[in-house]
Nucleic acid binder design. Structure first.
Length: 239
DNA sequence: GCCCAGGAGCCCG
DNA sequence: CGGGCTCATGGG
């Protein structure tokens, strides 16, 4: 079922190319297959913090400013005054909290450089990331999957909403429980987890909104809630 | 004006 | 351990 859903989503929306990163010489993050360099991996981690409960469009501007100010750099993040950092990420909201979070992240990365993190396994790394102030389960998993390329499924608010409606998860389930369900149902492949989460976000934005647009949903027949929208209209039966 | 967006921390019963 | 509050901007 989980693979069937994936196949329908990718047929409907195509390859997403997450995580968006700024290309060499570029000025803003673009979707082009994820990070390749250490700097791009740091940009992903920064973006993962900045996008907490925030529209990506607002985050994109903040990342763009950080890039222009040469702040996608562990030392630069550590040495910048927090108020100045906050001013640069203003558009991403919660800027005071997030400025502190970026500094905590940078402090961790100074002790644990990306090239060393790359060599470690997710089960050992995850608890360590969760100790960083401002890094919760979703941010930790986004870092593991999209910055470090580890096969870890990212669960977010869209995942909960969509799969609750599909009745493949239940409302109120704990983060790790939902993640277990995906891990048990899918082959443990980084590329699959990457694309699947991206497609969930796209579907959540376009169709499975708070007020769902079930009529045009590609998962309609798989969904108890959406199925009603594909049954013949009562009027058509009365003839 | 209201609601929402690719959460996390903290406090309280 | 679960529920409710706070943090804040920008677009619909």
């Amino acid at each position: 079922m989980f693979l069937k859903i994936y196949q329908r989503l990718i047929k409907a929306y195509g390859k997403q190319g997450w995580w968006p990163v700024t290309q060499p010489g570029g000025t803003r993050p673009v979707y082009s297959g994820g990070p390749k360099s250490a700097r791009q991996r740091l940009e992903v981690m920064v973006g993962a913090v900045l996008t907490q409960n925030t529209a990506w469009k607002n985050v994109e501007k903040a990342v763009s400013v950080l890039h222009r100010e040469r702040m996608i750099d562990v030392s630069a993040l550590l040495s910048a005054p927090q108020t100045r950092l906050a001013a640069m990420i203003r558009s991403s909201g919660y800027f005071n909290q997030k400025a502190a979070k970026l500094k905590a992240l940078a402090a961790y990365l100074k002790e644990h450089p990306t090239h060393k993190l790359m060599r470690r396994r997710a089960p050992a790394l995850r608890p360590e990331l969760l100790e960083i102030r401002g890094v919760g389960p979703e941010t930790a998993d986004s870092i593991l999957l999209y910055a470090l390329g580890k096969p870890v499924f990212v669960v977010d608010a869209y995942t909960r909403r969509i799969f609750d409606r599909l009745e493949l998860t239940q409302a109120g389930m704990r983060y790790e429980r939902i993640q277990e369900i995906f891990h048990a149902a899918l082959p443990r492949r980084t590329a699959l987890f990457n694309e699947y989460h991206a497609l969930i976000v796209e579907h959540g934005k376009r169709v499975c909104r708070k007020k769902p647009l079930c009529a045009g949903c590609t998962l309609r027949e798989l969904c108890p809630r959406g199925r009603a929208f594909s049954l013949p209209a009562p009027n058509a039966l009365r003839g």
